[in-house]
Design a binder for these strands. Sequence first.
DNA 1: GGTTGACTTAGAGTTAACTCTAACTAGTAG
DNA 2: CTACTAGTTAGAGTTAACTCTAAGTCAACC
Lengths: 118, 118
Amino acid sequence: MNINKFSEITEMSPYTIRYYEKIGLLRGVSRNASGHRWFTEKDIIWVNFIKRLKDTGMPLEEIKKYASLRELGAQTVKERQELLEKHQENLIKHIRQQNEHLKALNTKIDLYKSGEVG
Amino acid sequence: MNINKFSEITEMSPYTIRYYEKIGLLRGVSRNASGHRWFTEKDIIWVNFIKRLKDTGMPLEEIKKYASLRELGAQTVKERQELLEKHQENLIKHIRQQNEHLKALNTKIDLYKSGEVG
DNA sequence: GGTTGACTTAGAGTTAACTCTAACTAGTAG
DNA sequence: CTACTAGTTAGAGTTAACTCTAAGTCAACC
């Protein structure tokens, strides 16, 4: 598919898609006869994984590191797993903290509801 | 207390504290005889609330809106409550999504653990 | 009285992650 | 052949949220 279709499916602007390729996050995207990018199912899967890492707070720099390791093949499996496990830990901590924040926010809103805040 | 002590307690750099005052997030900070900022317990409470809103993804612009409403006193109680309730909703959605991301990440890591990824 | 240290300000610089512009090309429809 | 559309690139511009610099003030110590 062309970049517009890919943009639609992944819900990312063509600008962002090209940017991701430029910084080395999206590699090996093929081209058609006239030099236009031609995206495949594989690209969708990979971009969706990038989005997941990004949405859970991983900086693009670190996602790039994962991408580079992936590029190097089987010998980096362990390192990639470790990277993901560290991220998993961070994410668990993040969720825990967000739940604490939610609790505090609930308390604050209750004060408003009971008219104790003015 | 002076800005350094306040910085230590709130775990924010003096730069950030002055910046927050400059953009109108921190208002009515008093000064001592020689023109230096003098922070009180109230400032700590307020900054901690700001941090909570920020940590849960509220942009400083919107926190500023809440601060402005607060400044206007009792007649804005309803509006402030609504603002917080909208944020509460967003936060609940965010936590739900982060949990989904965590589940997907767990699955991915399991693939690594079982040696199905290379 | 001079130096040191903790503050002050206005405004410039930084960083991450886009987002856009300008100039260009290739394919298609009239 | 011309116009239009959909892409291409390098590189400039934007935004949020800081972070720092430079020049200055003020109180305390030697």
